[in-house]
Amino acid sequence: MATRQPTLAQTSAAQNPGGAVDATQPARPRRERGTRVRRRRVRAAWLFLTPMLIGLALVAGWPLARTFWFSVTDASLSSLEGANFIGLENYLVHDNGWYGILADPLWWQSVWNTLYFALVSVSLEAVLGVIVALVLNAHFRGRTLVRAAMLIPWAIPTVVSAKIWAWMLNDQFGIINHLLMTLGLIDAPRSWTADASLSMWAVIMVDVWKATPFVALLVLAALQMLPSDCYEAAKVDGIHPVRVFFRVTLPLITPALLVAVIFRALDALRVFDVIYVLTSNAASTMTMSIYARQQLVEFQDVGYGSAASTLLFMIIALVTVVYLYLGRRQLGGGS
């Protein structure tokens, strides 16, 4: 069985519908009749792509280029046009001491907060997601209803779930303090969202609650495609189910789990809504997105805020490139 595992893993990776680089091989009529028809099709293809490409250029390409440009200017929200080029002064400048983002302790705290938030919440979501997926994969009465219930946190708008949790975590009247005090776990109410040592955990709690269904669904899709024969073999051999999980199931669902984790990680690195609603601009939970938006909109310092946005973009681009590279290699090896 040990020798069969890699091939199984590869097949499941190649068939895995969650595999993000899945759509790169087009179906096409087996014989593309004649070059005339073929040329017409290629021309039509570009024609059909043009509206989408113009759309993406207008809302993504051009604005991103402008953000890069603003980051080396002294632009402010009221005078975007009259911006002057000031080099890298928004990033770092020496003028009787170091100034700029890279010398701002609050920026570094935001970076640390973001990484901490992403690491902890995505790890919890991965573990919980696998557990939920295993439960949903079992055959029991009412499975469809349970799956629908699991989807509810995912469907609730982030702002709404943050508000609901803010109410449940309310320091004076919240049900969570009430419950914990009734159970005798705490002896005085905690102010979950205001206390700097607790607020990050409050934010993580809400994010885990909301995003676990997404991970669970991707893992469940992979679980449902597992071949049943190796499970039967394991059962016949009398191998303990926990051992079967770690030796057979986990390696086989790893590709799908990785896709889910990378998507969650990219989301967690740019997290904004849940933190803005729960704890606003508090330093203890400030993330890179919150920092950048505060500079851009509230302090109206478009140049400085754009520099922060640019740094955030670079970090996420780096993660994406590493992921695409790994994903491509994995898929190339599988076929």
Binding site: L64, T67, L80, R293
Partner: peptide, 20 residues
């Protein structure tokens, strides 16, 4: 390109999009 755009952090295009 399509996959790349889906990974953009929204805040990275905020100032440029505001101008557009």
């Amino acid at each position: 390109i399509v996959l790349g755009v889906s990974m953009f952090p929204q805040v990275a295009v905020l100032s440029g999009l505001f101008e557009v």
